[in-house]
Design a protein around this nucleic acid. Sequence first.
DNA 1: CTGTCAAGTCAACGACTGTTTACTTGGCCC
DNA 2: GGGCCAAGTAAACAGTCGTTGACTTGACAG
Lengths: 196, 196
Amino acid sequence: MPSSCSPRAPARRRDATVTRAGILRAARRQFTELGYERAGVRQIAAEAGVTAALINRYFGSKEGLFVEVLSGAFQLAGALPSVRGEFGVALVRYITAHERRPPEDGFDPLLLILRSISSPSALELLRDRLDRRTIHPLARWLGGKDRTTRAGLVVATLMGTAILRKVLRSSAFPPGQVARAMSCLAPLLQGIADHR
Amino acid sequence: MPSSCSPRAPARRRDATVTRAGILRAARRQFTELGYERAGVRQIAAEAGVTAALINRYFGSKEGLFVEVLSGAFQLAGALPSVRGEFGVALVRYITAHERRPPEDGFDPLLLILRSISSPSALELLRDRLDRRTIHPLARWLGGKDRTTRAGLVVATLMGTAILRKVLRSSAFPPGQVARAMSCLAPLLQGIADHR
DNA sequence: CTGTCAAGTCAACGACTGTTTACTTGGCCC
DNA sequence: GGGCCAAGTAAACAGTCGTTGACTTGACAG
């Protein structure tokens, strides 16, 4: 079926939905690479091939654009295994898979959080999303005693290792030895899942 | 012994060393509360009761002031126990002690790191200090197999929990239930220390 | 072919940043 | 008591930021 929206679809150069999607894609990449504050609306618009004023037209404000970027992220469905005993290795496998081939565009919610927590307005949005869409679902999946605290510890461990490995690039986690880090991380996560 | 530095010490109002120390104190507080980027030289100077130009006179630049703030921090001596089996509880006790009565001025290196990692120039300084003064000494203390990776995991866990608890203020770690979080955290840290 | 409305640009606003230069002021020494 | 140098201030510089209103341009309908 050729072109469901229009009979002839002459590849129009002025398409609001296409432009909007382009801005959103550039924003996802720059927000994860630079964080909320350092990512400027002018740079984002330039990467999308438009002017900064269009961002305010389509998203109201920079914060509105950020909210739109956040929508749909933070759900960890797909990383959780069907068997409880494979929790640790499943998460580690999920991480290494995303390491080998980075996400389609440069979008990475974990990095976006870590580089945006210095902004008070972004922080409030991030806490809300992370609590509702990640921690509490994970707590339900884990079950048992102190489930929410343990879910928080899982997320904390993932965030902490991400900070040291990908943001700070600490010498404790050299890029060539991800396997060693992951083999230490897996039983740690599994231990949190089992303590119930 | 009254006033060791000067015979009469008429409480002079123009004292370079006192002013320098005042700027440093204000900088420590604001860098941990706002991070490197959001803490402005004008606000820091105002809290110290001087003008922003004095910061450049005494510290060369904002980055020079940041370096000075960083000097002396990041060493974890005092948190480590003499017995290896008490590693987890010792660290947890250290955290809760600092929780009960916050540090003298509002200085907290962990929060300073977490809120400053979005700045590239600050990041380089932080990685250097954290690696040399915290992770590698801790790895030496831990000993055994994968000591550096495990030291990194300890720091990662502490950073991650600090992010969720003190920066994001996630509902997974309500302020009134620090004991529950700590009782889950202690065996986790002990597990990292034992895995060798 | 022309009218019309959305898509997009341009320029400017006001506020803020770190830094520098020229200046004023206060306290100690002779 | 008068010089003199350090301590400290004031003002401006050159950027950048998000946002806004008025403007131009493109594409489709009649």
